[in-house]
Nucleic acid binder design. Structure first.
Lengths: 135, 135
DNA sequence: GTCCTTGCAAAGCGTTTGCACAGAA
DNA sequence: TTCTGTGCAAACGCTTTGCAAGGAC
């Protein structure tokens, strides 16, 4: 967690570090899976018995506004969330459903004809079979 | 539309070419935008006054099963649909919201460490400002 | 006391399902 | 007649909103 505690990290971004917020951030930071709201809720409800999904939604949207977290959609109409780190693609295995983060740092995706376009954000989703499942 | 009519195209894929199905396919084929169900419904309701959204959903899911059409999610929880053609990325302008198709034929997105993975499908979403809006 | 976080309940919205009618073969 | 496409209405699932109670400062 760099040299800052999670609470400090949140404060720096103008977010008051309440207990649920810290736990949700820690969850995203340490698990590094790509959870849905349900995943987060179900995993944290043991530790925070009073937690509600509303709070999970509120908190995630707060994090998104602060650009700490981003959301994306796989094919289902259900958002997934992750801490914003370096650029990477997502590879979802069609067999085991695991989502892999694949580095994709300096790939230029714009052909010459589109040189005039300014890219602020890129998201790459791959589907197929992962190495494990191919064995 | 190649050498086949739309009706023939559907029949080849095992789909009985009813009037709504032909119109929906034609819509996707000729407009080449990336419509939501609402877009399709609102644009076709004039021509097919009895059309229902259920039929749009049914038809699109039928097309997807026949691998004629694919759906994808931008950030909103709302599916967009398009005819399956050659591989391409989507670039959405954050200013005018237009979605551009960007060719991305032979880009290899897997670094060496992931050589063992088999990619069946790739989806690339870019966001930024398009050339028009930058002027 | 004031401000803000939390969480229940309800609403909202995109999508799917149940089912009955109608039209095609 | 049998099969299948269509479309209304209801159900469903994820997300947001309204609002009131409780806590932090």
């Amino acid at each position: 967690m760099d040299s800052l505690t999670i609470a400090e990290q949140l404060t720096v971004h103008g977010i008051k570090p309440s207990y649920p917020r810290i736990q949700i951030y820690k969850y995203l930071y340490t698990k590094k899976n790509h959870p849905t709201v349900d995943d987060i809720y179900n995993d944290l409800i043991e530790e925070i018995p009073t937690l509600s999904k509303t709070t999970v939604y509120n908190t995630l949207n707060l994090f998104i506004e602060a650009k700490l977290v981003k959301s994306f959609n796989l094919d289902k109409n259900e958002k997934r969330y992750e801490i914003i780190i370096h650029d990477h693609s997502h590879f979802q295995c069609e067999r085991c459903n695991k989502i892999y983060d694949i580095p994709c740092d300096d790939i230029n995706l714009l052909p010459k004809e589109y040189e005039g376009f300014k890219v602020n954000e890129k998201q790459i989703f791959l589907k197929g079979i992962c190495e494990e499942c191919l064995k």
